[in-house]
Write a protein that binds this DNA or RNA. Sequence first.
DNA 1: CGCAGCAGTTCGACACTGTCGAACGGGGTC
DNA 2: GACCCCGTTCGACAGTGTCGAACTGCTGCG
Lengths: 256, 256
Amino acid sequence: MGSTERKQIKSTRTAFTIIERISSTDGATVSELAKTLGHSKSTVHAHLQTLTEMGYLFRIGDEYHVGLPFLTLGGAARSTDRYQNLYRAAKAEIDDIVDQTGERAQVVVEYQGEGIYFYQSRGHRYVQTDSQLGTSVSLHSTAVGKTILSVLPDDRVEEILSNSELRPRTEHTVVDRGELRERIETIRERGYAYDREERIEGICCVAAPIECGPETIAGLSVTVPTKRASGEYFEKELPTLVTNVARVIELNTQYS
Amino acid sequence: MGSTERKQIKSTRTAFTIIERISSTDGATVSELAKTLGHSKSTVHAHLQTLTEMGYLFRIGDEYHVGLPFLTLGGAARSTDRYQNLYRAAKAEIDDIVDQTGERAQVVVEYQGEGIYFYQSRGHRYVQTDSQLGTSVSLHSTAVGKTILSVLPDDRVEEILSNSELRPRTEHTVVDRGELRERIETIRERGYAYDREERIEGICCVAAPIECGPETIAGLSVTVPTKRASGEYFEKELPTLVTNVARVIELNTQYS
DNA sequence: CGCAGCAGTTCGACACTGTCGAACGGGGTC
DNA sequence: GACCCCGTTCGACAGTGTCGAACTGCTGCG
C-alpha cells in the first residue's frame, strides 16, 4: 500500500461504495446505507440525491436502485478497443455452441484478479443460473477461472492467489493452494479444465482459455447439469468443442 | 431548476462527467479531459487516479478507458426488480424473432426521457449497427421511441418533447413537433410504428410498444435494410409479428 | 546536441464543500 | 396520543477538492 494513492477523491470513493452496496443488495435505503457503510444519514442522503439526479440511481419508495445508465457505460466498456474484437468474435462462436449443444455457454474475462461475465447465452435445455452479464466470479472456484490462471504468468497467479481467500463454495471447491497449483499445471498441459460441482451443486463446466494479447485474457466455458456431465459427451465432445472454439475466437480476435 | 438540488456532491458530478466523456470518445487523456471539461489538469488527474485505482477505468499508455466493472453494475441494473421480468421475457422472445426472421431485433426501455438499448440480438442476415447494448437513443427519431411516446401520458410526452431539440439524423427525420404528434396519434391507433430511414440511411424498423407498468415502458423493434423494407413482409408480416410478440412479453412480464 | 514544447505528475495553499449531529416533519404502530 | 423510525433539512466546522505553478520525462525540431 502507499504506492499509487497520492491524491485521491474521497467522496468519489464513497459514492461508488454506495453504488456497489446498492447493487449487491438489490436496493437499499438511506438508513441502511448509513448504518452499513458507517456514514451519517445526511452524507448518504446527499450522495443519493446527486446520483439520482444524474440518473445513475432511481428510487422506488424509499429504496434506491442502480439505473440503466450503467448499462450504457458497460456497453461502452465492452466496445472499447481492448475488448470489442473479443466481443464480436465471442458472441458469434458462443451462440454457435449454444445452438449445437443447447447448453449454456459464456465468455469470462480476467479483470484485475477477478473474472467478469463478458457474454453469455443459454440454449433450449439451459440450466438455471445466478450468473448473468457482468457477474464477477473468483478465479479459483470455476473452470473458466482456472483456465485463465493457467495462461497467466506465474507471478500474476501468485499475486492473485495470495490476494484471494479461496473461500469454498461447495464441498468440492478446491481450497488448498498446493492442490490448486497442481490442477492448474494439469490444465496448462492438456488445454482445458473441468468444474465438477466446485462452485454450485449439480452444475459442471468444461472450459478453455482464450488469449487475445497480454492484457486480454479470457476463458470460455460450457455449463451442464451434473446429470449430463459424464461419458463421451462430457469427457470428449465438450473438451474438443471448447478448445477448438477457443482457438477460433483467438484467431478471429487477432484479425479484425 | 432549483427543485431537488438541495445539497449535492459536486465532485461526484465531475467524476461522472469525466467517465461519460471518456466513454463517449472511447478513451481520453488527462489534458484532453482538462481542456474539454474546463478543469485543471491536477483535478482531472486526481479523479482519474481514484477511478483507476477502484477499477472503474483502466489505462493504456496515457489514455483512460471505461472498465468492465460498469458491465457488472449494468447487469445489476437489468436484474433489478423493476427490470428483471422484462429482461427474462424479452430475451426469449427477441431471440425467437431473430431465429424466425434472421433480422436484428431489440428491446429499448424508456429511462428519463431517453431510450436505452436493453437487449439486442442479431440474426444471420443482420445489418451492421452502431447500436449495441446500452446505447441511448432519442425517442423522436426511432420507431421504438415513437411507440414509447405513444403509450406515455400526454404530459410526459410534452415534457420530453420540450426538453429535446428534435435534432435531425437523416433527411427523413421528423423534426416538426406538430407532425410528430400526428404520427404518434396514428401509432396510438394502429398499435405499431415504422421508421423509414429516419435515423440511419438504408435502415428501416417496425416497432410496437410494451407496457409493463406505469414506470416500465419499453418498445420492441425489428430492424431491416431498406431493400427488404417493402411488400407483404414489411407491411403485414412484421407488424403482426412485433405487435403479437409485444403482447406476449407484456403478459410474461406480469406473471413471474 | 540542446532546447523548445507538450505530455503526465507532484506540490502547497486557499476557498470551498463534504461531512457531521442535531433538529424537523410525517407515517406508521402499539 | 406517545412512541419510533423513516427521510429530510439545517448550520458549522474540519477536511479536502481545487487550482496554478513547478517538476519530470519524452519527442522532435532546429
